[in-house]
Nucleic acid binder design. Structure first.
Length: 719
RNA sequence: GGCGCGGUAGCUCAGCUGGUCAGAGCGUAUGAUUCAUAAUCAUAAGGUCGGGAGUUCAAGCCUCCCCCGCGCUACCA
């Protein structure tokens, strides 16, 4: 069943994580498409609810709070406000921007947890987990620091190394330490609830690929993006595993306290975050004396999740599985995830501060929200990663917004004032003139307006297919056709014998301007409102203006009647100067990594901190030896591993080293190296590694060998 | 290493189930025009659709191999 036949829509945009500001990648990824879609549907007179909110739980926030010496509450309050205001200033028009720290959300999440437990969708598992005896608590993955086994970064987190991007598990960290106390964590038993995701694999596969569930056609898989379906199948093919839905944390939604072993446990942030969509809906319903269930529990609702590609698995597999396991909720009819936006040729990076922060843009280029929106839509990463450049922003602003669109509006208003004192002229509908769509064609007003209506319909169809770039282009074709209409008919040459013709042309042109004012709104809400005022029309109410307009045009009715007085000509957009653009490019290239107070947590500092002092006896236990690499081979099916054969003089050993991305086998054969010779052997990719090669690492994570002077004898110890 | 998505004109990108699919916008060139923020309109430029092989009457669009980018995943003492 296509979305267009549903009675109402529920649109969600990924909940921003409240420990950092928004950047243009977030906007292009989820919020702009969601906003365009929502605004469009409102203009089409459809019932649509657009919910979002701050995601305020999770270990990253508590980590950050600890680092800055403030409470998690202070962190989330700060970013909740910043993000909310940024959205508002950019015209992202949520019906509600909620937050997951609200009691309503906690309650909602707990209710769902209870229901899942009650229905047997969890299994309780006792596992060993790191525990900090000094702090007296279990350590979330994020709370365990250690040396990254991939790149040697000494400050890798238990779930991820931010330096090399590797995803890790705490057990992989070398020299694990607690982020709370610095103590060496110990293993201790803890209980968690695992959602049996594996039991949902079969129906998820069918639902994703065919749109069918329980014999019902819930969506048309052809309307889903290829990369979304592909990503899901990739996961499904690897087999879904039960996932822990609780954590040992002190910030988040409590596991319902009446449940045995619940003490000290919180819901996993990825369980509670999407539930935030539901609690946001509830909050909205409460405020509007409405019923939230008609949005979440009715087949008449089309649920659409707008997200970036990093969220596909949660929104297409895990959350749907939870919704269905619960049993009362509908599933999304589409998850039009976007890919990533790059910036000036490189990936966005918050830790390197390679980004355009939305709140800074608003400060640096005030009043240019629509220009940013336009460029981001034009370059939206709908099918693949795409790119934002400042030059590109300047170009689209100056050529498409100022020259084409702004120019057309300006011309119409000027001509209307010059010729008719600012009143819409009375026009003869029999009058023939050249079509703006084709100079060779002579046409009448109604035919021209019909063509306009068709264009608006085409634009709408593109929006409904989530093809926002195409829709934007179609919008601009209207403006171009308007320009052509003027160009072909030259209404500035109002000779006496052309009076009727000029009237008809300008009458048509102002109808185009009205149509643009409405059709622009999803993309350029601020300029649309300005144009609306300039046209001397009532402000938008988001109550079906576009559908009314299209119907009028199709029926051959004008959308602005003769003698309607329009406002004075006023430029809709202004040019973006080289100066402004250069300054931003400068800023980007000279940007310092953000200060701790401004930055998301990051391990970037010039030098890794010193580890704690150890007694000599500990050092003495190390047996370091000089050795020569006599053979090196790439390990099958491993990108980072080399299997080295090293000669210690008194014996030859096999050592597996994670250096394949830094050295080719040829480069290492014959080198003298230092070896930790008494390290417990360990199997890697099926090969037993009998020691470890010492490597030095720089700030970028590059590795080099540590070795003695040329020709030093083998096998003797290092001290 | 495995899997997924991409690799199309100088730039940014469209191309649905194979047969007007070789395209759009910007940039460039030429011409027209002056109502308009040197804005607008028209026309053109010819890119072996990453490389190679294959299937087909017909392939950017299907198959196989290789190369490159991004993402997920495995490996990492």
């Amino acid at each position: 069943m296509p979305a267009s036949v549903k009675k109402r829509y529920l649109v969600t945009a990924a909940l921003p994580y409240a420990n950092g500001p928004l950047h243009i990648g977030h906007l292009a990824g989820a919020y702009l498409p969601a906003d365009i879609y929502t605004r469009y549907q409102r203009l089409m007179g459809r019932e649509i609810l657009f919910v979002c909110g701050s995601d305020e739980h999770g270990a990253a926030i508590t980590m950050r709070a600890r680092k800055e010496g403030v409470s998690p509450r202070e962190i989330v309050d700060k970013y909740h406000v910043l993000i909310r205001d940024t959205f508002q200033k950019l015209g992202i028009a949520f019906d509600i921007y909620h937050r997951t720290s609200e009691p309503l959300h906690h309650q909602t999440s707990q209710d769902i947890f209870r229901k899942l437990l009650e229905k047997g969708h969890f299994e309780e598992r006792e596992t060993e987990q790191y525990y900090d005896e000094i702090a007296g608590q279990f350590l979330a993955d994020r709370y365990i620091l250690g040396t990254c086994p991939m790149c040697g970064n000494p400050d890798a987190y238990g779930d991820q190394c931010e330096k090399c991007g590797a995803s890790l598990s705490p057990d992989q960290l070398l020299q694990p330490r607690s982020a709370l106390s610095g103590a060496m964590p110990i293993k201790r038993l803890t209980t968690h609830w695992y959602f049996k995701l594996n039991e949902h694999e079969a129906w998820l596969r069918e639902w994703i690929n065919t749109g069918q569930l329980d014999g019902k056609q819930l969506h048309d898989p052809a309307t889903w993006k290829a990369h979304v379906v592909g990503q899901c199948n990739s996961w499904l093919d690897q087999g879904l595993q039960p996932r822990a839905m609780t954590r040992d944390l002190d910030w988040g939604v409590d596991v319902p306290p009446e449940i045995p072993h619940a003490e000290g446990k919180k819901l996993y942030v990825w369980l509670d975050a999407p539930i935030g969509y539901i609690s946001a809906t509830k909050q909205w319903a409460t405020e509007h004396y409405d019923n939230w269930e008609r949005f979440w529990k009715s087949d008449e609702t089309a649920l659409i999740h707008f997200i970036g590609k990093d969220n596909i698995v949660f929104h297409c597999l895990i959350f749907p599985a939870i919704l269905r396991a619960h049993g009362e909720f509908i599933l999304p009819i589409n998850v039009p995830a976007n890919q990533f936006l790059n910036l000036e040729g490189a990936k966005l990076s918050t830790s390197r501060n390679w980004a355009v922060w939305a709140h800074e843009y608003l400060e640096d280029l005030p009043g240019r929200e629509d220009e940013l929106r336009y460029n981001l839509i034009k370059n939206m990463p709908e099918q693949r990663d795409s790119e934002f450049t400042w030059k590109g922003l300047q170009e689209t602003t100056n050529t498409e917004l100022v020259a084409n669109l702004g120019g057309f509006i300006q011309r119409v208003f000027v001509l209307l004032h010059k010729n008719y004192g600012g009143l819409v002229p009375q026009a003869n509908w029999e009058q023939i003139f050249r079509s703006g769509w084709d100079a060779e064609q002579y046409i009448t007003i109604d035919r021209e307006l019909f063509a306009l209506a068709k264009k608006l319909e085409a634009m709408g169809a593109e929006v409904e297919r989530f093809q926002f770039r195409d829709a934007l282009r179609t919008l601009m074709e209207i403006s171009s056709a308007g320009n052509a209409l003027l160009q072909f008919n030259e209404p500035w040459k109002a000779t006496p014998e052309r009076v009727e013709e000029v009237r008809a042309v300008l009458f048509t042109a102002i109808q185009y301007a009205v149509a643009l004012s409405v059709a622009m709104r999803p993309f350029l809400p601020f300029a649309a409102a300005r144009l609306r005022a300039q046209l001397n029309l009532l402000p938008f109410e988001d109550g079906g203006e576009l559908v009314a307009l299209i119907n009028d045009l199709l029926e051959g009715n004008p959308v602005l009647w003769p003698n309607h007085p329009v406002g004075l000509p006023e430029h809709l957009f202004s040019r973006l100067t080289d100066e402004v653009v250069e300054k931003q490019i400068q800023k980007l290239h000279t940007a310092q990594p953000p200060t701790p107070a401004e930055a998301p947590p990051s391990s970037d500092s010039a030098y890794p901190p010193l580890k704690k002092t150890i007694p000599y006896e500990v050092f003495e236990q190390l047996d370091l030896r000089v050795a020569t690499v006599v053979d090196a081979q790439k390990v099958e099916k491993a990108d980072k591993l080399l299997r080295l054969t090293v000669d210690l003089g008194f014996e030859t050993r096999t050592i597996v080293a994670g250096i394949a991305q830094h050295y080719t086998p040829e480069q290492v054969v014959g080198r003298q190296v230092l070896v930790v010779a008494n390290l417990a052997p360990r199997k890697m990719r099926g090969i037993e590694s009998q020691g470890m090669i010492l490597m030095a690492e720089d700030a970028q994570g590059h590795l080099c060998f540590v070795r003695p002077d040329e020709g030093w004898p083998h096998g003797f110890s290092v001290r």
